[in-house]
Computed example of a mutant assay.
Amino acid sequence: MPRNRQQIPKAEREAALVDHAWELFATRGYKGTSLAEVGRAAGVAANAVRWYFPTKDDLFAAALGHYVTQVRERIEADEELAGDPQRELVALLLDMEPYRGLHREAYERIGDSEALAGTYGQMQEWLEGRLLAAITGGLPADADVGLIADTAHVLFEGLLVSVRRLDRPTAEVVQLLTEALTAAAAARRGTGG
């Protein structure tokens, strides 16, 4: 006999909402998904969804954050990728490529949603961390790491939200990015910049 909803722990109901929300957002996009549809898919009354997630942006942030966390955990557990920050970075970007439209919608909404800004910020922090780990060995001791991180942030946003398909494999683009940033940091050092 199925359990009564009151017997299902809150965390379990919340997780079901997030899972169903991700499926709907991934297939229908942000604008094409309603809280009521997510509730129906998860077997929760539409009004009850707002008890867990007061706004659609809160649910969107939770779904996007959950997806990114799952991808990161899988990458970090993969023996072929783990410990190689550049390969980890490429793997995450490749996994997210089919969801560029969702990233674009999240990016457009981060100014209006603290939840989305936080989720997107955590993802960017991980991406930048992988990039900095990949290039640290080639950087001069006095390199402006903040400038490199800012540059990487802008470039990653472009990779995540662009509607343009890359002419080259993502791994090749990331390789060029790491080489260019390392060379630029070394050149700035030489010019006193």
Score class of each variant (00 low, 15 high):
Gln6Gly: 06
Ile8Thr: 13
Ile8Leu: 10
Lys10Arg: 11
Glu12His: 08
Glu14Gln: 15
Asp19Ser: 04
His20Asn: 03
His20Met: 06
Ala21Lys: 02
Glu23Val: 06
Thr27Ser: 12
Gly29Arg: 13
Tyr30Ile: 01
Ser34Phe: 12
Leu35Asn: 02
Glu37Pro: 03
Ala41Ser: 11
Ala42Gly: 03
Ala45Tyr: 12
Ala45Phe: 06
Asn47Thr: 15
Pro54Gly: 03
Asp58Cys: 05
Leu59His: 01
Leu59Arg: 01
Ala61Lys: 07
Ala61Pro: 02
Ala62Trp: 02
Ala63Glu: 05
Val71Trp: 03
Glu73Ser: 13
Ile75Leu: 09
Glu76Ala: 13
Ala77Thr: 09
Glu79Gly: 12
Glu79Lys: 08
Glu79Thr: 12
Glu80Tyr: 06
Ala82Ser: 15
Ala82Lys: 12
Asp84Asn: 15
Gln86Leu: 09
Met96Pro: 00
Pro98Glu: 07
Tyr107Ser: 15
Glu108Arg: 15
Glu108Gln: 14
Ile110Thr: 15
Asp112Trp: 09
Glu114His: 08
Glu114Val: 13
Gly121Val: 13
Gly121Gln: 10
Gln122Asp: 09
Gln124Lys: 11
Glu125Asn: 14
Leu127Phe: 09
Glu128Gly: 11
Arg130Asp: 04
Ala134Thr: 09
Gly138Asn: 11
Leu139Asn: 06
Pro140His: 09
Asp142Ile: 07
Asp144Ile: 06
Gly146Thr: 15
Leu147Lys: 04
Leu147Phe: 10
Asp150Phe: 14
Thr151Glu: 08
Ala152Met: 06
Val154Tyr: 08
Glu157Ala: 05
Ser162Lys: 07
Arg165Glu: 02
Pro169Cys: 04
Ala171Cys: 05
Glu172Asn: 03
Val173Met: 04
Leu176Trp: 08
Glu179Leu: 07
Glu179Lys: 06
Thr182Tyr: 03
Ala186Gly: 07
Ala187Tyr: 09
Arg189Tyr: 10
Gly190Arg: 14
Gly192Phe: 12
Gly193Ala: 13
